[in-house]
Design a protein around this nucleic acid. Sequence first.
DNA 1: ATTTATGCAAATCGTTTGCAAACCT
DNA 2: AGGTTTGCAAACGATTTGCATAAAT
Lengths: 150, 150
Amino acid sequence: MTKGASLSEIHDAALQRLRQSDQRYTPNRRKLVETLHEAPHPQPIGSVLEQAAGLAQSSTYRNLTVLENAGVVHRIVTGDDHARFELSEDVTGAHHHHLVCTQCGNVLDVALSDQLEDLIHSELALAAASKGFNGQHHRIDLIGECVTCV
Amino acid sequence: MTKGASLSEIHDAALQRLRQSDQRYTPNRRKLVETLHEAPHPQPIGSVLEQAAGLAQSSTYRNLTVLENAGVVHRIVTGDDHARFELSEDVTGAHHHHLVCTQCGNVLDVALSDQLEDLIHSELALAAASKGFNGQHHRIDLIGECVTCV
DNA sequence: ATTTATGCAAATCGTTTGCAAACCT
DNA sequence: AGGTTTGCAAACGATTTGCATAAAT
């Protein structure tokens, strides 16, 4: 599934963000970005390595961390013990949340209305402030069973 | 910080749930429940072991898993690499969400209004249904910095 | 010429597991 | 007795890291 932004727009955004972090946009990193762009939903490292043939596992971990720190990639940790990766919202421009399958660990993207997002954001901000907590962003997961696991 | 339900109510609820899973409520498990009940927020295993002196680490992992499967305890996996545990909402009776500190990994509890919870629930259910996803419950985290880390 | 990225193999560390002794009913 | 729980020590496995080579500036 192709996201809203085109691949070249995404490469541009990635390049820009990496430069801001004094990082290079190497062929391996480009390949990671392309692989994640083509994936229909967040991918565990195993799948990424299968898709982007030729990448070493350790370099992939390292590059995903670089891309994460630069804000190009987002790491999703659910509890089943493989982290999953997707392009960051800053790069795709699409704020969304996740459906997490308790059986297979798969993660799907889902969006809520802007109106509801605003309500959530402001109520969370209020609650956080009362505890001196400085909130930066929220994440919402719906836990359940995906269509192939029911 | 003591939760709404009294300790004996919590022990009763725990006992009942364990029995439904054909599990015993052993002294070690009672000690874990008490420790979590007394804790002001979700605790990593390290803290649990400090609080409930004398427990072996491996037995504690095993018992927390038993308690989790019985629905007495809830495991929180954030991404900083220590799982954290708290009494389950089914036992405490208090639905809530989490503030997660990106610096120290600490997790604080926070509640939203019932009205907002309903809105979130129904919009998530709708979005999930469109993907054939069978949603069971949601979790919401506010990511940011806690008062001691800012 | 330096600095940075890569890939291999080895190390790390939270968590899980094997097993024999202690515990319950 | 028969099954469960415990604690120790060993195993596990996803991720990280050391190091020597290759690539980039």
